[in-house]
Structures are given as structure tokens and as C-alpha cells.
Computed example of a mutant assay.
Amino acid sequence: MEKIVLIVHILTALAIIALILMQQGKGASAGASFGAGASQTVFGSEGGGNFFTRATAIFAFVFFCTSFGLAIIAKNSSSIADDAIPAVIESGPAVNDVPASDSDVPAVEQSAPANEVPVAPASEQ
């Protein structure tokens, strides 16, 4: 099922690209008002703007639906379970009961009380 949705998704994306490239810009209709041969086109003197606009909207809707479908398929087929999340080990010794030599955290040496500010030596001038 995923492969079918993926193939429809890719074909829809290519169709949207092709439809956008075939559409004319807004400035292209100025030449049609002066009789620039637009009456001999496939879609008539109005051009294919309305057809291409509607086809692009339909393909954009299909593209959105296939994107949404692929996201749901990916979510349902994910292999992450509750077993992959590590749990807290309860059987080990408490943090306060661990001797200082076994700890990975280095011990902090207290060199000065917290309320004393060291004074810089006076420079001689």
C-alpha cells in the first residue's frame, strides 16, 4: 500500500511541476488583445488558464492527501516501542551512599570562604 501511495505522490508532484511550467504569466494576455494569433490555439482565445488553474488545484489536493497518507503510514509502521526507552534503575545504591572514589564527578576543594573577596596585590609605581 505504501508503494502505491508513494508512486501516486511522485506522479502527482511531476504533474504539478508540468502544469505550472505550461501556464502563462499575467503579462502574456496583453498580446492576445491585439490579435497575436491566439484564436488558433487549442484552448481558444481565452487561453488554457482556467483549465490549467483547475487542474493544478486538483493535483495539489491529491498531493496533499498522499502526503498526509504517507505520514500516517510512516507513523503506524514505526518500530519505536516502550522497550527502547530506558527506565530508572532502582536497585543501585543511593547517591549519598556512593564513596567519593567511585564517583565520576571530581571532588570540589574549598580554598576560601564564599564571603571573602581576594585582593589583588598593589603594584609599585
Rank of each mutant, 00 (worst) to 15 (best):
N76I: 09
V105C: 00
I73C: 00
A81I: 05
I20L: 12
I10L: 11
L19K: 00
V119Q: 14
P121M: 02
P93Y: 06
T12R: 08
F68D: 03
A120L: 15
I7T: 11
V119I: 15
A36P: 00
P93R: 12
H9F: 06
A60F: 05
S77T: 15
P106H: 02
P113S: 13
Q40T: 10
R54Q: 04
L21S: 11
G49R: 05
F52T: 09
K3D: 13
G47K: 02
I16Q: 04
A87D: 05
N115A: 14
S78E: 07
V42P: 10
N76Y: 10
S77R: 15
T66P: 14
I16E: 04
A87S: 12
I4W: 03
F34A: 07
T12Y: 00
D83T: 15
M1Q: 05
G47T: 02
V105F: 09
S111H: 14
K75N: 06
G25I: 04
A13C: 08
R54E: 02
H9N: 14
E109T: 12
A74V: 01
A55C: 11
A114P: 06
D83M: 09
H9G: 01
I72M: 07
I16L: 15
T41L: 14
A32N: 15
F59K: 05
F64P: 00
A84M: 15
I80H: 01
S111E: 10
I80G: 04
A122M: 03
A28N: 12
F51M: 08
I58R: 09
V8Q: 09
V117E: 12
K75C: 06
V8D: 07
D82M: 13
L14H: 06
A71G: 07
F68V: 15
T53V: 02
G37E: 05
S45N: 11
I72N: 00
I4S: 13
V105E: 06
D82W: 10
I73G: 00
V95P: 05
P86I: 12
I73F: 05
K3R: 12
G31P: 00
L19V: 02
G47S: 00
T53R: 08
S91Q: 09
A60Y: 01
M22A: 11
F61W: 08
S29I: 09
E90N: 07
I17F: 15
I58G: 07
Q125P: 13
T12D: 07
G37D: 08
K75R: 11
G69S: 11
S123L: 12
S33G: 02
Q24L: 13
F64W: 14
V98E: 13
G69C: 13
L21V: 09
K75W: 11
E124P: 07
L19I: 08
S77P: 00
A94M: 10
V88A: 15
G48P: 06
M22T: 07
A71E: 01
E109W: 05
M22V: 01
H9C: 01
A38R: 01
L19Q: 04
E116L: 14
A81E: 13
F59D: 02
S39T: 04
V95R: 14
P113I: 03
